[in-house]
Design a protein around this nucleic acid. Structure first.
Lengths: 229, 229
DNA sequence: GACGATTTAGACAAGAGTGTCTAATTTTGT
DNA sequence: ACAAAATTAGACACTCTTGTCTAAATCGTC
């Protein structure tokens, strides 16, 4: 008799569960409607909670917004570092390993719910809360990019790549691997898995043409199939 | 005695001038505040026009928003095609010429006022008005990307590059050239000129490492200075 | 200089949203 | 089972915004 808002909403049990549920619902609503358009009543309804509870937990709309951004940043960072830990330090098949890494990074950190929401909040509210997003910039790209750069530096040191500046190479790796997803990202969409794989494959191939050890002529790789989908 | 809103606002003269002024002001306010947060009174004030005039010209808020997106898309497209016309078809110094092209594209089409605003409106409202931005996608990337790809195809045909798929290469070119500007774009900022030049330089170098004819060993280019700034 | 069209300032009704308050109910820990 | 804490529904004042309306002022044009 309860789920009068949406079939799959059960009132969350416990104080902390409610807090979580509110932040999650708020993230969705802020993204869809923007800060000004977000409606506290709607957030409460989507969280399966009364409006007063929202105010009890978070004070007011602006504090709630801050809490959302902090939570998302934290979760996304955790995901990114977990994925960086899977970077291929001793690659068997360098191309395949880097493609796998790129796909994992995209699917687990950038295209998932949290990543999508955080990106959108940054895009829409970056100018309104400069301090808040300066913090994000330090905690996010400021920490993850160097971490990725360090992994590329190690690959170069191990003789698998020829890189001048690992920081530049890391940024270019990300740029290449997402090159075909830009429009979808801009519109707030979620690319299909095959699009992610496609973009990663093409990106890594080009990356290796620029930075890879050249294979002896004639030893051409044989996974060209994917590229023509 | 007029400029009571901002020193540099003179009431625009003439019907069409007012329309223009309203759309421009609206673009700025919609970007800063989002659709819901945008205030018609504020738009009118920034346009140097009375509120009633805004309604006379555009009907209501939603129609005004549509007009803004259409105007921006049109202007940006014009700029992009004008810049594509300067693509180096018969390059003297390929690296320098491509860097120049990339910088022009960024400065005149992507980092300027219109480009910045359009990008932000797409990001924030892409999901709310799917039909409107489907139109943008066709008219924008749908027409400009193939045009750029065609230019790269010609360079390849002329023997200046080695490219499998010109469409992929074009997207990767843009990804590389903007690789170092992503964070700034996300936050809605405008990169400084030297950042644009830096990113373009690094991007084009990598692009040519991947797709360029290899120079005979020993004939190394000598503009490495910029890359270490 | 005069006429018609446009623009302006201001008032206005209607609606929506925020944040507070209260009294009743439910949950949690013991 | 009991007491304390948390949650709920609903009403409420207050503010802000949209879109309309009117009468006066201004502009462009002949």
């Amino acid at each position: 008799m309860r789920a009068n808002v949406s079939p799959d909403i059960f009132p969350p049990r416990g104080h902390e569960a409610k807090r979580l549920s509110i932040v999650d619902a708020a993230a969705g609503v802020f993204c869809r409607e923007g800060f000004a358009g977000a409606n506290i009543d709607l957030i409460a309804a989507e969280a399966g909670v009364s409006r007063q509870t929202v105010y009890n937990h978070h004070g007011d709309k602006e504090k709630l917004f801050m809490a959302v951004v902090r939570d998302l940043t934290e979760r996304c960072n955790a995901g990114i570092f977990a994925t960086i830990a899977t970077f291929p330090d001793q690659p068997g098949d360098l191309e395949a390993d880097l493609i796998g890494f790129a796909v994992r990074l995209n699917q687990n950190c950038i295209c998932n719910r949290d990543g999508k929401f955080l990106r959108k909040l940054i895009q829409t509210a970056g100018e309104r809360y400069p301090e808040l997003f300066a913090e994000w910039r330090e905690q996010g790209p400021g920490r993850t990019w160097p971490a990725i750069a360090a992994r590329f530096a190690r690959l170069a040191y191990g003789g698998h790549l020829t890189i001048d500046d690992p920081d530049v190479a890391a940024r270019q790796f990300l740029g290449l691997v997402n090159a075909e997803l830009q429009t979808t990202f801009m519109l707030g969409g979620t690319p299909r898995e095959d699009e992610v794989v496609q973009s990663a494959t093409n990106g890594v191939r080009t990356f290796l043409r620029a930075f890879g050890k050249r294979p002896a002529p004639g030893s051409v790789k044989k996974h060209t199939a994917l590229a023509n989908a």
